[in-house]
Design a protein around this nucleic acid. Structure first.
Lengths: 116, 116
DNA sequence: CTAATATATGAACAGTTATTCATATATTGA
DNA sequence: TCAATATATGAATAACTGTTCATATATTAG
């Protein structure tokens, strides 16, 4: 650290970083939100919902998983405010909660240079 | 599913979702990238690096963890192209790899209504 | 070359999590 | 009320992952 050519700038950056570091609690909230969208099974659900609201049965078809697994994952996504649920008769229709979700997915795909 | 008021739209959306679902391999790449930024320890490193390039020792100070833990986490972040490394004498300076990273962090904070 | 410093890494343990299976709840139609 | 359909959920197991500890590697000063 001491012999670093940029010791001065780094020290300033480190000091600013320490001063502006979000509280542990907030860091954990953000981390939990990313974790919610970091499993392939949940991500597939989000990719599917980009095409519009769907009820569970359709999501199961779209992602090719089991009803139980999808339901468990939907609960997690909902608990983090990533999807919203709306009862419609016997069915429950799920949708992406807000534009941030789509925006984040698109940024990730841009970063990875994969087509969406 | 059958009795759903929006059966028609949902079925169309489901069909489109199936047709446009990224390959398993791509879904996993995106998921892995999100997973990389979904642990509090790694997220703190990214929050720190928003303030500029830093070498490991400074990152350790900024996030308040151990050298070993930080080094392990940096390797993961680097392997996913989220941070870049540059040797500078005895030190190795890390920096955020591209603008997408900052943009994603900012979107997440906007979604969660927390100040960055 | 040697000592000192900065960073990386392998192994092991503890904690977390996704899926499956079985079952429960809720809504609708008869 | 009863049967059928859609969705949710609890428990259990298997797989994964972050941290720690000890140690290795790399760079520079002397």
């Amino acid at each position: 650290m001491k012999g670093c050519d940029h010791e001065q700038q780094h020290a300033i950056a480190a000091e600013r970083a320490r001063a502006n570091m979000p509280k542990e609690e907030e860091v954990e909230r953000v981390a939990a939100s990313f974790k919610a969208i970091s499993e392939p099974s949940r991500l597939k659900i989000l990719f599917a919902l980009r095409h519009g609201e769907m009820c569970v049965g359709h999501i199961v078809e779209a992602v090719g998983s089991t009803q139980s697994a999808v339901s468990h994952q939907l609960r997690i996504l909902k608990s983090f405010g990533i999807v919203s649920a709306r009862r419609d008769g016997q069915n429950i229709a799920y949708a992406l909660a807000d534009e941030h979700v789509v925006a984040v997915l698109e940024l990730a795909c841009a970063h990875l240079k994969c087509k969406l």
